[in-house]
């Protein structure tokens, strides 16, 4: 029952999104976008994320106030032209590559581990060996500075290179006088 409700709300959101792109009357388009936003807010509420729902609601309301004011100040009709024949070939290419991508991604998803199974071959080893091998209690620091110290070293070099670059660009001495 719950899943059916959720899926129906998501289908409503999809329909509203398609309408928002296709409708020529801009005010109706904004209303369809509002349907998308508030449908998503309801979905967030059902998925027990009320904090995200409040942020979504506030952002939606502010966005629609701005959008409606823009529509009132400018034109109320979408005057861009519809699809012509010349745009068919890029669209066809896009669909072709989308189908290819979906086929390859399905083949790739089959090799992934089952949802919910633990996949921690490396990190379980690190968690088990941190105290006995290194002796540091903070596992994050032990991983950053012992198991993956190369990574941290290169990050430090990135910082130094950035600072030296800024220094070289903004230096005063050794610069030619501009005429």
């Amino acid at each position: 029952m719950f899943a059916i409700l959720l899926v129906s709300i998501l289908i409503f959101v999809l329909i509203m999104a398609a309408l928002a792109v296709q409708i020529r009357d801009l005010m109706s388009s904004v209303m369809a976008l509002a349907g998308v936003g508030f449908g998503l807010a309801i979905v967030f509420l059902f998925l027990s994320a009320p904090e995200v729902m409040t942020a979504q609601l506030v952002l939606e309301v502010i966005t629609y106030v701005i959008m409606i004011s823009v529509v009132y100040k400018t034109s109320k009709l979408d005057k861009t032209r519809k699809y012509s024949v010349r745009e068919i070939s890029p669209a066809a290419a896009m669909f072709f590559f989308a189908v290819v991508f979906i086929i390859f991604s399905i083949r790739g998803i089959k090799d992934l581990p089952i949802f919910g199974e633990p996949l921690m071959r490396a990190s379980s080893l690190q968690i088990a060996q941190t105290i006995s091998e290194i002796g540091a209690t903070n596992i994050v620091t032990a991983i950053l500075l012992d198991f993956r110290a190369w990574n941290t070293l290169m990050e430090a070099f990135v910082i130094i290179v950035m600072i030296v670059g800024v220094t070289v660009i903004l230096r005063k001495k050794g610069r030619k006088v501009e005429r």
Binding site: I131, I134, G135, A136, T137, T141, A142, L145, D146
Partner: peptide
């Protein structure tokens, strides 16, 4: 390594 939970522990970390 030293003793865990003490200040002088953890090798070069």
């Amino acid at each position: 390594q030293g003793d865990p939970h003490y200040l002088f522990s953890g090798g070069i970390v």
